[in-house]
Simulated scan of single mutants.
Amino acid sequence: MCARVLVADDDPRHAEGIRRYLVAAGHETMVVHDGRAALDTARRDRPDLLVLDVMMPGLDGFQVCRTLRQESDILVLMLTARGTESDLLLGLELGADDYLTKPFSPRELVARIRTLLRRASRGEPSAPGVRRIGRIGVDPVGHQVTVDGERIECTRGEFAILAAMAEQPDRVFSRAQLLHYTRGIDRSSTERTIDVHVMNLRRKIEADPRRPEQLLTVHGVGYKLASGPAPFPAAP
């Protein structure tokens, strides 16, 4: 599915890299490097989708998104290097359809764009920020987790870990990195606490917690949330 895409990123090298991948995927792609140009170009050329960096001179991405959402139904995928929950939620509350946290793989960006365009072509409402990884759905706005469409209950610590991993499927997180996401919830957390959270999450999201297929251990490093079933029996 091809579309007209506007990329707004103040880093010319990064923007050019995105442009090349989108062109290779068949999209007609325009690039601007500041918020005012993004707003003017979106109004003039009416692209189907805007890839919008948060940190830009003049008008930042939040201001651009807020203004455009009052004027049009253009699809907006926000890019943020901040990665804090408050920034991500603000973008979604302003009307962004999806977001990616830097660094991200170009293939994931293309896949996210394809998903947004497919929803729009079917007339389906976007589910802002909902991550669907295999059988698992994670909604950072509603703080909900589903497995095969059925809602499950998670503690705040479990949700913080799962939401962080769902944002970057197949990325390996160390225990120390996952600990960072739970610090504001339980200051007494330790790396052992992460192991307990993972063990409890497996009981809730895996068909067989002893042979997990998605929430996997990477020996000597940490854990990852796999986007597909494990090719071999995974270690608990």
Rank of each mutant, 00 (worst) to 15 (best):
I113Y: 00
I133N: 03
A166L: 09
R112S: 06
R132Y: 05
R119S: 14
G142K: 11
D170Q: 05
I152M: 01
K204E: 13
H180M: 11
R114P: 04
V130H: 02
L178T: 07
I136N: 00
Q168K: 10
T155D: 09
R156H: 11
R211G: 01
L178F: 08
L178Y: 07
E191Q: 12
L201W: 02
T146F: 01
E191W: 01
P140I: 13
T146A: 04
R118N: 10
L116G: 09
T193C: 02
V130S: 03
A160V: 06
V138R: 01
P169L: 06
P140F: 12
T155I: 03
R211F: 05
P125T: 04
R156D: 14
E150P: 01
P140C: 13
E124N: 12
A164G: 08
R131G: 10
T190Q: 13
L117S: 05
E150H: 09
V138P: 05
I185G: 02
R114H: 12
S188A: 15
I136P: 00
T146M: 04
T155A: 06
P209S: 07
V130A: 07
H143K: 15
L179G: 02
G142R: 15
A176T: 11
L201R: 08
H143V: 14
V130D: 09
A127M: 11
R112A: 08
D186V: 04
P209T: 05
R211D: 03
I136W: 00
G137S: 15
I185A: 02
R122H: 15
S188C: 10
P209R: 01
R131Q: 13
P128Y: 05
R192Q: 14
G184M: 08
S189K: 04
R187D: 14
M199Q: 14
P140T: 13
L179T: 03
P128E: 03
R183Q: 15
L116V: 13
G184W: 07
F159V: 01
E153H: 05
I133W: 03
R132M: 11
S189R: 09
H180I: 13
R151Q: 10
T115P: 06
H180A: 11
D170A: 06
A120G: 00
R156A: 15
R187A: 15
D139T: 11
A163D: 13
L178P: 00
D170I: 04
L178Q: 02
I113Q: 02
